[in-house]
Design a protein around this nucleic acid. Sequence first.
DNA 1: CGGAATCCTTCTCGATACTG
DNA 2: CAGTATCGAGAAGGATTCCG
Lengths: 125, 125
Amino acid sequence: MAANGADVLRARDEATCRIREILDRVGDKWSLTVISELGQESRRFTELKNAVPGISQRVLTATLRGLERDGLVRRTVHPVVPPRVDYELTPLGRTLLDTAWTLMTWALEHMDEIDEARTSYDHAN
Amino acid sequence: MAANGADVLRARDEATCRIREILDRVGDKWSLTVISELGQESRRFTELKNAVPGISQRVLTATLRGLERDGLVRRTVHPVVPPRVDYELTPLGRTLLDTAWTLMTWALEHMDEIDEARTSYDHAN
DNA sequence: CGGAATCCTTCTCGATACTG
DNA sequence: CAGTATCGAGAAGGATTCCG
C-alpha cells in the first residue's frame, strides 16, 4: 500500500471530485454489501437477491451493472435453459474486499456507541 | 438445542441490516469527505463549505447534523457576534478516520483501472 | 456567520407486468 | 431464471430568501 493519509490529502485538490465519484459507486446503498456477499464465492442472480434482504430486483440489477462497468464484478451468462448468470469478483473487486470488510467491521464494532449517541441526541431534542 | 438454520439466517439478516444502516451514514455522498476534512483539525462551518467543493449549504448542514447525531462529530457554538461554530471529530469519529483514509486511498490507487474498465464497458455497448 | 424555511425540480425506488 | 419496461410516489437536492 503506497499512499497514506497525507498523500490522500495532498492529492485532494486535484482529485476530490474523482474520489467522490468512486466513493459514489463503492459507498452507495448496496454495493459494499453485494461485494462482501460475492467475497465468499460466485453467486447467481437470485442467490444474491435472497442474500441481500431488502434489495429489489431492479436495484440489484442496477448495482451489479454499475459494479460490472467499474470492473469490480464479472458477469457470466451460461447459454442454458433456464438461463444461468453467475457473478463473481474480479481481482480488482477483490482488492476492495479487504477495505469493505474493514468498514463493515468498524460498523459492527461501533454499532452500540452509535445507537447510544443517537438515543442521547434524539432525547436532547 | 443449537440454533437452527432459520435463526442463523435471521441473525445474519439483522446484522446486515444494521451494518447497512450505519454504512448509510458513513457511506453517503459526503460524510467520508467531511470526516477526512475534520481529521486534521476543527473547522468552522464556512471553512468546511469551502473545503468540500460542490456541497450545498443545506446538505452540509444535514450531513453535519447526521454525523453529530451519531456521535462522530462535536458541534461547538461560540456565543459571539458574528456567530462562530466549530466542528471537530469526537474520539469515535477519529476511529473512523483510519478506515475512511483506507477507502479513499483505495479509490485513488485504483482510479485509473476503474476509468479503463468504464471506457471499455461503455465502448462495448 | 451559520443556519432555517420555502419552493421547486430531479432522481430514486418499489410495484407491477411482461419476455427470451 | 434473469432480467427489461413502465409508471407513480416520495425523497433528495439546488436555489433563494430571511433571520438572530
